[in-house]
Amino acid sequence: MSAGLLLAGLVLLVVGAEGVVRGGSDLASRLGVPPLVVGLTVVSLGTSLPELAIGLSAVRDGAGELAVGNIVGTNLVNTLLVLGLAALLAPIRFEARTLRHDLPAGALAAVLLFVLARDGALSAADGLWLTAFGAVYLASILLSTRGARAAAPKSHRDVRAPVTVVVLLAGLAAIVLGAELLVDGAVDIAQRLGVSDAVIGLTVVAFGTSAPELVTAVVSAVRGERALAIGNLMGSNVFNVALVLGPTVLAAPTAVPVPDDVLAGDLLLMVGATLACVPVFWTRRGLSRIEGALFVGAYLVYLATLLATRA
Score class of each variant (00 low, 15 high):
residue 226 R to L: 14
residue 226 R to D: 07
residue 226 R to S: 14
residue 228 L to D: 01
residue 228 L to E: 09
residue 228 L to Y: 04
residue 228 L to C: 11
residue 228 L to F: 06
residue 229 A to E: 01
residue 229 A to P: 11
residue 229 A to L: 10
residue 229 A to Q: 01
residue 229 A to D: 04
residue 229 A to T: 06
residue 230 I to T: 15
residue 230 I to S: 03
residue 230 I to G: 01
residue 230 I to K: 00
residue 230 I to Y: 01
residue 230 I to R: 00
residue 230 I to W: 03
residue 230 I to A: 06
residue 231 G to Q: 07
residue 231 G to S: 11
residue 231 G to N: 05
residue 232 N to V: 05
residue 232 N to I: 02
residue 232 N to Q: 11
residue 232 N to K: 04
residue 232 N to A: 10
residue 232 N to F: 02
residue 233 L to A: 08
residue 233 L to V: 14
residue 233 L to P: 12
residue 233 L to M: 13
residue 233 L to W: 12
residue 233 L to K: 03
residue 234 M to I: 02
residue 235 G to I: 10
residue 235 G to S: 13
residue 235 G to N: 12
residue 235 G to V: 12
residue 235 G to A: 13
residue 236 S to Q: 03
residue 236 S to M: 03
residue 236 S to A: 15
residue 236 S to F: 00
residue 237 N to S: 13
residue 237 N to K: 09
residue 237 N to I: 07
residue 237 N to E: 14
residue 237 N to L: 03
residue 237 N to Q: 15
residue 237 N to H: 01
residue 237 N to A: 05
residue 238 V to I: 14
residue 238 V to C: 06
residue 238 V to S: 06
residue 238 V to R: 01
residue 239 F to S: 03
residue 239 F to Q: 14
residue 239 F to R: 00
residue 240 N to K: 07
residue 240 N to S: 08
residue 240 N to R: 07
residue 240 N to C: 07
residue 241 V to P: 01
residue 241 V to N: 07
residue 241 V to Q: 04
residue 241 V to S: 01
residue 241 V to I: 15
residue 242 A to R: 01
residue 242 A to P: 05
residue 242 A to W: 12
residue 242 A to H: 08
residue 242 A to I: 07
residue 242 A to K: 06
residue 243 L to E: 09
residue 243 L to V: 12
residue 243 L to G: 09
residue 244 V to H: 08
residue 244 V to M: 04
residue 244 V to F: 04
residue 244 V to G: 05
residue 244 V to L: 09
residue 244 V to Q: 03
residue 244 V to A: 08
residue 244 V to P: 02
residue 244 V to T: 13
residue 245 L to T: 11
residue 245 L to Y: 10
residue 245 L to R: 02
residue 245 L to D: 08
residue 245 L to K: 05
residue 246 G to A: 09
residue 246 G to D: 06
residue 246 G to P: 03
residue 246 G to I: 12
residue 246 G to L: 10
residue 247 P to Q: 05
residue 247 P to H: 10
residue 247 P to T: 05
residue 247 P to V: 10
residue 248 T to W: 10
residue 248 T to E: 06
residue 248 T to R: 08
residue 248 T to Y: 07
residue 249 V to K: 04
residue 249 V to Q: 00
residue 249 V to P: 04
residue 249 V to Y: 09
residue 250 L to H: 11
residue 250 L to Y: 13
residue 250 L to A: 08
residue 251 A to G: 05
residue 251 A to H: 09
residue 251 A to K: 06
residue 252 A to T: 07
residue 252 A to G: 06
residue 252 A to Q: 10
residue 253 P to I: 07
residue 253 P to M: 03
residue 253 P to N: 04
residue 253 P to G: 02
residue 254 T to H: 14
residue 254 T to G: 03
residue 254 T to N: 13
residue 254 T to Q: 14
residue 254 T to A: 15
residue 254 T to Y: 04
residue 255 A to H: 00
residue 255 A to C: 03
residue 255 A to N: 13
residue 255 A to Q: 14
residue 255 A to G: 14
residue 255 A to K: 05
residue 255 A to S: 15
residue 256 V to Q: 09
residue 256 V to W: 04
residue 256 V to G: 07
residue 256 V to I: 12
residue 256 V to L: 10
residue 256 V to A: 09
residue 256 V to M: 08
